[in-house]
Amino acid sequence: MTGCNMTSDVLNASSIKANGEAPSRRTTMLAHMGSLQQAAYVRPIEYREGRAHGLGAIEVKNGPLRFVSMSDKALDVCEFEYRGENLTFLSKPGLNGRNQFDTNGQEALRSIMGGLFFTCGFENICGPHTTPEGSQYPAGDYPMHGRIRTTPAEHVRADARWEDNEYVLEVCGEMREAELFGENMVLRRRITSRYGTASITVEDEVTNESFRSEPLMWMYHCNFGWPLLGEGAQVVIPSRKVTPRDEITAADTTVWHEIGAPVPNKPESVYIHELAADEQGHSFAAIVNRALGLGVVIDFNIKHFPHFMEWKSMGAGDYVVGLEPSNSSVYARQWHEQRGDLHMLAPQASERKTLTFTVIEGEAAIDALIARCDALLA
């Protein structure tokens, strides 16, 4: 049981009707509050200083859960907190709006800031790449992690409403990655959270609105930092097989799922996981911290994400773990081009993907997550 659920249970238990029937959540909340915004709201905001100056976003509060979706940057979630504790990673450049160097090769490292997740794709993920003329695939320069993450949203809608007995908080919009004589890919995104549950669900649909088949590389770069990430924290993944990305990772003597203290100038390690799943393809990845009594679980389907990578950076000042469900490999576009299996989306076709991020709280919830991992691997 999460703390958010406990809040709603206390409200329900404290207002029993004379006939012995418990009131609905809606009736109870309206009876206890003048404005529901003291417990939950969806609110457009704009940052006013530094690299984030002018960045438009939508702040969502759901009881003890708070997150921020950036309307100027693909509606990606940059801030994610529970009971005031930060759960995500923010890189050295800090919170960034859109910059001239966002999609300029390796210069993307100056604007990649982390957050709960940023969307990678759709022409490329991971390292920058150039496809030459004469290739079977569209030629061009493709920046690190692609362009969609810096694309501003249009047709943005933010809403808080009752659906029967559920108070639903919702952010929607669409992003278009397009070029004259080139691609025309539209991402339609909906992020929802329901009062009484410490979770958010991201529902995405990408449509190829051009008249040629287009590459569709698609990864969610999910990033966790201090204080959730600290000495003794643990990466929980039902991994059947783990492969180091490179020689540096292979030489790392630490265990992929254990989190130690920051080490000055320690290089990053990247692991490729083969995940176990249930009969329907449902699987997950998580970070848990028993000392803090918290964890974050990402639920997804491996049929939609046949590749999964773990980015583990224990370097001082770059202390982060990234969990990365993807439809493409960490070896990026050139690897798929050489193999001839770059994922393509036909003209006017669409693909959909869903992720759910859930905060778990307490020893029992963490133990249950470990048991779930063991059951998938059994």
Score class of each variant (00 low, 15 high):
residue 17 K to Q: 09
residue 22 A to D: 00
residue 22 A to Q: 10
residue 22 A to T: 12
residue 25 R to T: 13
residue 25 R to L: 14
residue 27 T to F: 00
residue 28 T to Q: 03
residue 30 L to S: 11
residue 33 M to H: 15
residue 37 Q to Y: 00
residue 39 A to L: 09
residue 43 R to G: 06
residue 44 P to I: 02
residue 45 I to L: 01
residue 46 E to P: 07
residue 62 N to Y: 03
residue 64 P to G: 11
residue 70 M to K: 01
residue 71 S to I: 07
residue 73 K to G: 04
residue 75 L to E: 06
residue 76 D to T: 08
residue 86 N to V: 10
residue 86 N to H: 15
residue 89 F to L: 08
residue 90 L to T: 12
residue 92 K to C: 05
residue 93 P to Q: 06
residue 97 G to Q: 06
residue 106 Q to L: 01
residue 109 L to Y: 00
residue 110 R to S: 08
residue 112 I to V: 15
residue 113 M to K: 12
residue 121 G to H: 02
residue 123 E to S: 09
residue 126 C to G: 08
residue 133 E to F: 15
residue 134 G to C: 10
residue 136 Q to R: 11
residue 142 Y to E: 03
residue 143 P to Q: 00
residue 159 D to Q: 14
residue 161 R to T: 13
residue 161 R to H: 10
residue 168 V to N: 00
residue 168 V to H: 01
residue 169 L to M: 02
residue 173 G to R: 06
residue 188 R to P: 10
residue 189 R to V: 13
residue 190 R to K: 15
residue 191 I to D: 02
residue 194 R to N: 02
residue 201 T to D: 05
residue 203 E to Q: 13
residue 204 D to P: 05
residue 204 D to G: 13
residue 209 E to V: 13
residue 213 S to I: 14
residue 215 P to N: 08
residue 216 L to Q: 07
residue 220 Y to P: 07
residue 225 G to D: 04
residue 238 P to S: 05
residue 239 S to W: 07
residue 239 S to N: 02
residue 240 R to T: 15
residue 241 K to S: 14
residue 245 R to D: 04
residue 248 I to C: 06
residue 252 D to S: 14
residue 266 K to P: 01
residue 268 E to M: 10
residue 270 V to P: 00
residue 285 A to N: 00
residue 289 N to W: 01
residue 299 D to P: 03
residue 301 N to H: 11
residue 302 I to M: 04
residue 304 H to V: 15
residue 306 P to W: 10
residue 311 W to S: 05
residue 311 W to T: 02
residue 316 A to D: 07
residue 318 D to K: 14
residue 324 E to D: 11
residue 325 P to W: 04
residue 326 S to Y: 07
residue 328 S to K: 04
residue 341 D to S: 10
residue 346 A to Q: 13
residue 348 Q to W: 05
residue 349 A to V: 08
residue 354 T to S: 03
residue 357 F to I: 07
residue 360 I to V: 14
residue 363 E to F: 07
residue 375 A to F: 07
residue 376 L to S: 07
